[in-house]
Each structure stands twice: as structure tokens, then as C-alpha cells.
């Protein structure tokens, strides 16, 4: 359904619409949860945050709790949907594999010019590890949050040991979630990873990028089905792309080329795909 090579558009669909919705549901509700969770500590009034016009709500614990609940509904539904939906479909592309830790270190070294990047599958080994790490954090947050919610409504006098455990698991996982979010942002700022950014907005990455950096994934796609040139309904058509983003991607691509030892076959398609070509594509 999702992954598909669109040769004529020079794109590969990397994420389905469902996956994009899952990601953004978790991301946006997660951000609201971080902010409203932070305001559960008496910080907004002390630090004059509530004095900023438009932020008066931040100082009202009952309001921020309501917001926290609403965002939780989205967050928890998305998380459980994710597990069941992809679990039943047998999609395990993000599950860590043996040797991911070692490969990740090699990849990170390559970002700093030491050694070369190994060929990737759909996901980088560090993406798989980050996924597992984030999954653990989210599981801790959700389980402890559910206990706290139940306590708030039905059982304020539940066992103190249970409440204290849930509270501290929630608080520590909150810090980890925050750190993981920053690590996530740091990872996409790295130049070699930037061509992937568009995928989380549009669902697609550039074909030349994928061929160059994710040859194992492409081999699988090309082996499974014939490259399709027929008009599919991509999530966002090439026309809708931001010109700025294109420039950034092209630059990123060029940098990637420079960093990768020249002469490898995988590098060739990248050279052929210039911004001009893209514009030509769009004109069609």
C-alpha cells in the first residue's frame, strides 16, 4: 500500500498516510503533554510565564490538567493503534536488529568524516534503536499516566507505594521523553539525514536519495514489484513541494556525495538528479 517507487516523479513513497497521521498525532499531542506536564509543577506563576499575554492558562492547574488529559487521549489512542495495526500487519522495519548498536556507532562516526556509511535498509540502525528507546519511554509514560488518571478519578486513597511508583516513573520518563525529543531533532538537523525530513511531511523521499543511501530497501522494493510509472495517488504531489526545501535537499544531497567516497555506483543517480530536473518534472 505504502511503499512505492514513482519513477516519473523521481520519488519513493516511504510512509503511508496512516503512518504520517500516527507520527504527527504522537508528536503534536506529545508536545502538548510535555508543556502541560511541565506546568503541573508550580512553575508558570513563579517564572512569570502566566503573566505573558495569552499564557494566563499556564498558571491554572485545573486547566492544564484538562489539556493534559485531552492530549493524552490522542497520544494513547495513537500509541495503541500503532502497536496493534502494525503488529497485525507484521511490519517490523523499525524493530532493532542484531548489530544495530555497532553499526550505529560506525554511522555516527561517518557523520564526522570517519569511515564510510554502510548501505541502509529503509531505516538507519540508529533509527531502529531510537524507535525502541522511544517505545520504552512511551510505554512507561502511558502506563504510569493511566495509574495516575485512575487515582485522580476513582481512587485517591490507592496504595501509596503504587502512587509513588507511578509518579516517579512518570516524572523520570517525562525527562527522558524530553531528552529523546531533542535527540530526535538533533538527528534530523544532521545533513545526511535531511533528505528524510520531507518524508515525514509528504510521505516521500527523492528516488536518487533512496537509491544512494537506502539501496537495501530499494533492492527489496524493486525485487518485490516492478517499478511503477503509472499515476499513483501520492500523499502530496511533487508540485506542492516547497522550493526552499528542495534547495536544502539538493544541497544536502551534494554534501552527502562529497562525504561518500566517489566512484561508488550508488552515488551516480544522485548526480543526475538536480534541481533543474525536478523543475522539469514539475512542469510536466
Amino acid at each position: 500500500m505504502a511503499e512505492k517507487i514513482l519513477e516519473d516523479k523521481g520519488l519513493v513513497i516511504r510512509h503511508s498516510l496512516v503512518e504520517l497521521i500516527e507520527h504527527w498525532a504522537i508528536a503534536l499531542s506529545g508536545l502538548i503533554l510535555v508543556v502541560t506536564g511541565f506546568f503541573q509543577m508550580p512553575t508558570a506563576n513563579r517564572y512569570y510565564i502566566a503573566s505573558i499575554p495569552g499564557l494566563a492558562w499556564s498558571g491554572d492547574f485545573f486547566t492544564t490538567l484538562k489539556m493534559h488529559y485531552v492530549a493524552s487521549v490522542i497520544f494513547v489512542v495513537a500509541a495503541f493503534f500503532h502497536v496493534v495495526f502494525h503488529g497485525m500487519r507484521g511490519e517490523k522495519g523499525l524493530m532493532p536488529k542484531k548489530g544495530d548498536m555497532k553499526t550505529s556507532i560506525a554511522v555516527i562516526k561517518s557523520f564526522f568524516g570517519k569511515g564510510e556509511e554502510p548501505p541502509f535498509h529503509k531505516y538507519l540502525p540508529e533509527q531502529r534503536l531510537a524507535y525502541a528507546g522511544m517505545a520504552v519511554i512511551i510505554v512507561l509514560l502511558i502506563l504510569s499516566g493511566l495509574v495516575k488518571t485512575y487515582k485522580n478519578i476513582y481512587a485517591p486513597d490507592m496504595s501509596l507505594a503504587v502512587v509513588l511508583t507511578a509518579t516517579w516513573v512518570h516524572n523520570i520518563a517525562f525527562i527522558l521523553f524530553f531528552l529523546a525529543f531533542f535527540a530526535h531533532m538533533a538527528a534530523i538537523i544532521l545533513k545526511p539525514n535531511r533528505p528524510m525530513i520531507r518524508a515525514i511531511f509528504t510521505g516521500a523521499v527523492r528516488l536518487d536519495y533512496a537509491r544512494h543511501r537506502h539501496p537495501l530497501w530499494m533492492a527489496e522494493l524493486e525485487g518485490k514489484a516492478e517499478t511503477t510509472t503509472e499515476q499513483q495517488t501520492p500523499l502530496v504531489s511533487a508540485d506542492a513541494e516547497d522550493a526552499e526545501e528542495d534547495t536544502a535537499n539538493t544541497q544536502a544531497m551534494q554534501t552527502t556525495q562529497e562525504e561518500t567516497p566517489a566512484g561508488t555506483e550508488a552515488a551516480t543517480p544522485g548526480e543526475t538528479m538536480t534541481k533543474e530536473d525536478q523543475i522539469n518534472l514539475e512542469r510536466k
Binding site: V73, F75, F80, L146, T149
Partner: peptide
């Protein structure tokens, strides 16, 4: 929130 796991699944 308490119903959300069931809805999601």
C-alpha cells in the same frame, strides 16, 4: 484517557 487504550487497539 482510561478508555483510550481500548479505542486505539
Amino acid at each position: 484517557v482510561l478508555a483510550a487504550p481500548v479505542i486505539g487497539m
